[in-house]
Design a protein around this nucleic acid. Structure first.
Lengths: 236, 236
DNA sequence: AAGTGGTCTAGACCACCGC
DNA sequence: CGGTGGTCTAGACCACTTC
């Protein structure tokens, strides 16, 4: 355990697991200070971390309390398809449908922030969960980010990007409902004209460099999107 | 300006607006300390607030930088339909379709965490943007939260809930693609069988009490969901 | 090696809640 | 009123990036 506040945070987790339920009060910050022999700032750093995850919440002047279990879910996180499926209890797999070098059309160029006709790598994959079709994914990468010859279909794309010095840190996602094309319906094994969930993702590095544009089309009958949001009343 | 860190945060905003663009470095924390005559912790509190909003980001050992404009605004936030439409540049309006007292069925009871047959208030509204149908919204509230006689159709529901001591603080949302029913297609003015975006929301207070279950069905041709996500590599 | 953000101490006073 | 979390000071050392 590298840092003290992480030790304290783990300790608080144990206290909660051992003896507290939703809306019970935690020991006060001053009590935790002496219990772990740390300064108050360290206790507050630990609590801030747990509050960020929604495990506890603060009430000014009253105390810190255990959050309700129904609301445990973390802030939405950027995950790979494999991570996403694993967390949903499926075994993820993948079948390549196409891999080619293309010139960016207007839409791809706009999303990647590059000029039209910039050389790009295009990868189209069928994504499966427990060996059943779940989604069709199209990924577009500027050739300068990852050359097509260096792309290994049997390794995680994010891992390869990290190794190439383009670690994905954040992404913007646009979620919409669409009606499946004839071809996509056939690939996904659903009736033609079915509804589907389209997720367009633009990924970037910590420093803001655009790395990837991807569109994933999920079967509506097998996939939904779950996010937790909070109301920010303390702006400005 | 109540607190010093807010003053510092405003000052940093001004510095950015006046002379910095995306990925430029901010003055160092120690420089800001002396410039505003505050302690380092206060500077860090200000920067933490701005980083939370995505306006700046930290790089350990290097500096604090201005976030890229494309990526800064969209931390997912819990918004009312009116706020949402306003931020998208539309004028929101509403037309009540039904208001009744019902007994919770299994689904509603599960979402609201109450026994089946608990008395609830049900409000169904057509939501319009610039006077064009955008969505159909069904809201279910336990009667103990807001009695049907106290519900005013001409006032914001969230305002009324706040006044009744049930301020909505966070929500879990489930987003999926659906195929519109005959009736909903007619109400929304789209062809029968069109795809639509369904957003189910369970709202709760800061203390975790479940307040509201709502399902909003958006026209797929007019609405999409935009969220920014980050990759959390620092868990555990 | 110099400069940056990350963690931490040992105090202090303020704002808010509940009795 | 006493106890709580919220803000703040004036230092310190560590970890990391950059040159």
């Amino acid at each position: 355990m590298a840092h003290k506040y992480e030790t304290v945070a783990s300790g608080i987790r144990e206290i909660i697991d051992a003896s507290l339920v939703a809306h019970d009060a935690l020991p006060s910050e001053r009590e935790l200070m002496s219990r772990y022999s740390v300064s108050r700032m360290t206790v507050r750093a630990a609590i801030a971390k747990l509050a960020d995850e929604g495990l506890v919440y603060n009430v000014h002047g009253s105390g810190t309390y255990v959050g309700s279990k129904d609301l445990f879910l973390k802030t939405p996180k950027l995950t790979s398809f494999t991570e996403d499926m694993t967390s949903r209890g499926y075994v993820a797999s993948s079948r390549p449908l196409a891999l080619s070098r293309i010139d960016a059309d207007e839409e791809i160029a706009r999303h990647l922030g590059v000029p039209v006709d910039t050389e790009c790598t295009h990868l189209r994959r069928l994504r499966l969960a427990d060996n059943n079709p779940m989604a069709i994914e199209d990924v577009y990468l500027p050739r300068t980010v990852l050359e097509i010859e260096h792309l290994h279909l049997d390794q995680s794309l994010y891992e390869q990007l990290t190794e190439a010095g383009h670690e994905v840190y954040r992404a913007e996602q646009e979620i919409q409902a669409i009606t499946l094309s004839e071809e996509d319906s056939r690939i996904l094994g659903v009736p033609s004209g079915s509804a589907a969930l389209s997720v367009e993702r633009v990924s970037s590095s910590r420093r803001g460099q655009l790395i990837e544009f991807a569109r994933t089309i999920y079967r509506a009958d097998r996939y939904s999107f779950h996010i937790a949001v909070t109301r920010d009343n303390n702006e400005k």
